Computed example of a mutant assay.
Amino acid sequence: MRRFKKVVGIDVAKETVVASIYDGKEHKLMDLRNDPKSIEEELIRKKGLAKGETLIVMENTGTYHLRIACHLSEQLGYPVSIINPFVIKKFAERKLKRVKTDQVDAKLIAEYGMMEQEEIRIFRPKARACYEIDSIIKTIDGFQGQVNGLLSRIENMNNLPYKDKEAERSLKRAIGALNREIKKLEKRLEDIIDQNFKTEKEVLKKIPRVGSKLTAVVLGIFGRFENFERAKEVTSYIGICPSPYISGKSVRGSGRISKRGNAFIRKTLYVCALSASRYNKGCKELYERMIENGKRKRVALIAVANKLIRQIFGVLKNMREYDPDYHAKVVTFS
Rank of each mutant, 00 (worst) to 15 (best):
I122Y: 13
I302T: 14
I265R: 00
E42W: 04
T235A: 06
I39D: 06
I238P: 07
A92Y: 05
Q195Y: 02
K165H: 13
K187L: 13
A263Q: 11
K138V: 01
K28W: 02
G48R: 05
Y287L: 10
T63V: 13
Y279A: 05
I302H: 02
S258E: 02
I83M: 08
G239I: 03
A177N: 12
K201Y: 08
C70E: 15
L301Q: 07
K6D: 04
M319G: 06
C70S: 08
A263E: 12
Y237D: 02
G223R: 03
L96A: 12
G52H: 01
A177K: 14
L269S: 01
G142V: 01
Y237K: 03
V17T: 14
N179T: 07
G220P: 04
K198G: 04
D23V: 10
K206Q: 15
R289Q: 07
V331C: 05
N306F: 09
F264R: 00
L151R: 15
V251F: 13
R266F: 14
E111M: 13
R289S: 14
D134L: 10
A129M: 04
A328I: 15
L49K: 09
H327A: 09
H71E: 12
H65S: 08
M58I: 07
K47C: 10
E292C: 07
R310Y: 04
Q117I: 03
F86D: 09
N262Q: 06
H65K: 08
F86C: 01
E118G: 04
L189S: 03
G149I: 02
F333A: 10
Q144H: 05
D194G: 05
L55N: 03
G24K: 03
S38T: 15
N84A: 13
K163P: 01
F333M: 15
R2P: 13
N293F: 06
G253A: 04
R98P: 03
Y270A: 00
G255P: 12
F333L: 14
L66V: 12
P244H: 03
G52V: 05
I154M: 12
I39E: 06
F264N: 00
E59V: 14
S212F: 09
I207D: 04
A328T: 09
R188D: 09
K259V: 03
V299L: 07
D134M: 08
R224H: 11
E42N: 14
F123P: 02
Q75A: 15
F143D: 10
T16Y: 15
I246E: 11
S212H: 05
P161F: 03
K28S: 11
K249Q: 11
V57P: 01
K97L: 14
A273H: 04
I221A: 02
K284I: 05
E59I: 13
A177G: 10
E202D: 14
G253P: 04
R180N: 13
F143T: 00
A273R: 05
E168C: 02
A110M: 10
L286P: 00
G142M: 13
S277E: 02
D23S: 08
P324E: 06
T332R: 15
Q75G: 10
A303N: 08
R310D: 01
D191L: 10
N84C: 08
K126I: 09
V18E: 12
R67I: 07
Y112P: 10
L96S: 11
E229F: 00
T215H: 02
D323M: 06
K249L: 10
I182K: 08
